[in-house]
């Protein structure tokens, strides 16, 4: 069993989702639910930490596409951080670095919210 887990931590108005394991066509609904819960709570400043995510496929990437517009319409953003090179390659091949801020670690991701800067 590869398994998948999402753990959430809130710090003031920023919520961080820590992803662990395999984010695939079978497990992505768990991630979708975690993001939907944030939408329901109107928490739109979101960091996704990939440090423990070993695998992602198109189903996982589709989840990001499903929420980003709502998040930005509400003055928020989804910042991505701590990806392994293999996971980053998948995002890169699909052109995500032009749409999302992808940074090395969580501190930089928080900094992006403080600065108010965005890639796109």
């Amino acid at each position: 069993m590869n398994g998948f887990e999402v753990v959430r931590k809130d710090l003031e108005d920023v919520s961080t989702l820590f992803l662990k394991g395999y984010l695939d066509a079978h497990t992505y609904p768990q991630f979708e639910s975690a993001l939907q819960k944030l939408m329901d709570e109107r928490r739109f400043k979101i960091i996704v930490n990939f440090s423990d995510l070993s695998y992602i496929s198109s189903a996982g990437l589709g989840v990001f596409m499903g929420f980003i517009e709502t998040v930005r319409e509400n003055a928020g953003d989804i910042k991505l951080c701590a990806m392994s090179p293999k996971v980053f390659k998948v995002f890169d091949l699909l052109g995500f670095p032009t749409i999302y801020d992808i940074v090395n670690d969580e501190t930089q991701a928080h900094q992006k919210f403080t600065d108010g800067s965005r890639t796109n």
């Binding site: 496929s57 589709g62 596409m65 699909l94």
Partner: peptide, 23 residues
């Protein structure tokens, strides 16, 4: 294959998987 150079609202999720397979 998906169009990867279009603005966000026009992007479609379909076809992403096969695009990755081919890479």
């Amino acid at each position: 294959s998906p169009e990867l150079n279009v603005p966000l609202p026009q992007r479609k999720v379909g076809g992403l998987g096969l695009h990755l397979v081919k890479q």
